[in-house]
Amino acid sequence: MTLYLVRRLVTMLLTLLALSVVVFVVIQLPPGDFITSYIARLSGSGETIDQAVIDTLRERYQMDAPILAQYWAWLKGMLHGEFGYSFEMKLPVAQIFSERIGISLAVELLAVVVMWAVAIPIGIYSAVRQYSIGDYFATVIGFFGLAVPNFLFALVLMYICYVWFGVTITGLFSPEYMNAKWSLDRFLDFVQHVWAPVLVIATAGTAQLVRVLRANLLDELNKPYVLTARAKGLEKRKVIMRYPVRVAMNPLVSTIGWVLPTVISSSFVTAIVLNLPTLSPILLRALLSQDMYLAGALILFMGVLTMIGTLISDLLLAWIDPRIRLGMVGAN
C-alpha cells in the first residue's frame, strides 16, 4: 500500500510537470509576447503605461531570457503562489482566485455529489429490473443526457423558467446578496439558485455513470458468487446490495478519473451561459482577450484540481478493492 501510494504520488508530480509544460506552451502560442501586444492595445485605445511597470513585468517574466528560463521563472512563481498579474482585470491573479474559487468548488463538488447520489440508485434499479418500464425510461433519459450539450440544456432550462414561470435562473445570488457577507440568508439564497447549474452539469455525467454502473452490475449479477450467497440463505435484496453492487462499485469509483475532467469542462460552459460568479467566465474573458498568464494559471489550476481528484479516487479504489490494495492488479 505504501509502495502504491508512493508510486501514485510520483506519477502525479510528473503529470503535473507535463501539464505545466503544456500550459506554458499555450501561453507562448499567440504571436508576439504578451506585454508588447498589451502595450499596443493600450496605446491603440489612447491609454499609456508607465515604462517602469513595463520593465518590472519584463523582468518578472524574464521576457528577454531564453524560453527555458522563462518557463522556469513562470513555474517558480506558480510554486510560490505568485500566479501573476491579470493585465486585463488589473488585479493579481491570486486575488481573483481567492474571490471565486470557493464558489467554483462548491458548484462542482455539489454536481459530483448529485451525480453519484442520483446515478447509483438509478443504475442499481436499471440493472436489477432490467427491461422494466423504469429501466427503459432511465435509458431514454440517459441517451438524451448524453446527446444534449450542456450549454443547450442550460439555454432551454433558462428559457423554460423564464417564459413559463417568469423566473430568471442566471447567477448564483440575488442582487442584494451578490456582494454580501456569508449569512444564513445568503446561504439560502445560494441554495435557491444553485440547483439549476448543478442540474445542468450533473445530467450528462449522471447518464454516463448510470450506463457504466448498469453494465457492470448486469455482468456481476450473473456471477456465480451471487448464487453462492443466495445458497447460504441470504435474502435476495441483501445479496444484491452486499455482493454484486459492492463489486460493481469498484469500476464506478475508478470513473472519477474521467468524471472530474468532464464536470470541470461542463461546469465551464454552464457557468458562462448561466453567468455564474465562478472562475470559468474569468477564463473565457482571459482567453478572448488573450490574457494568457491569467488563462494559463487558471488552466493549470483546473488541472491540479482534476489530478487531486483522480488521486483521491485511486486511493479510494485501493481502499475498497483488496485486489489493488494488495498489489494484484493495476489501478486501471
Binding site: 469542462s265 465551464f268 488552466i299 483546473m302 488541472g303
Partner: peptide
C-alpha cells in the same frame, strides 16, 4: 494518453483555439 485523458478538455481546447490570431 492517460495524461491527455486526465485533462479537462474544454478549457484546454479553448486555450488552444484562443491562441489563433
Amino acid at each position: 494518453i492517460e495524461f491527455l485523458r486526465s485533462l479537462p478538455t474544454i478549457p484546454l481546447w479553448m486555450a488552444l483555439a484562443s491562441a489563433m490570431p
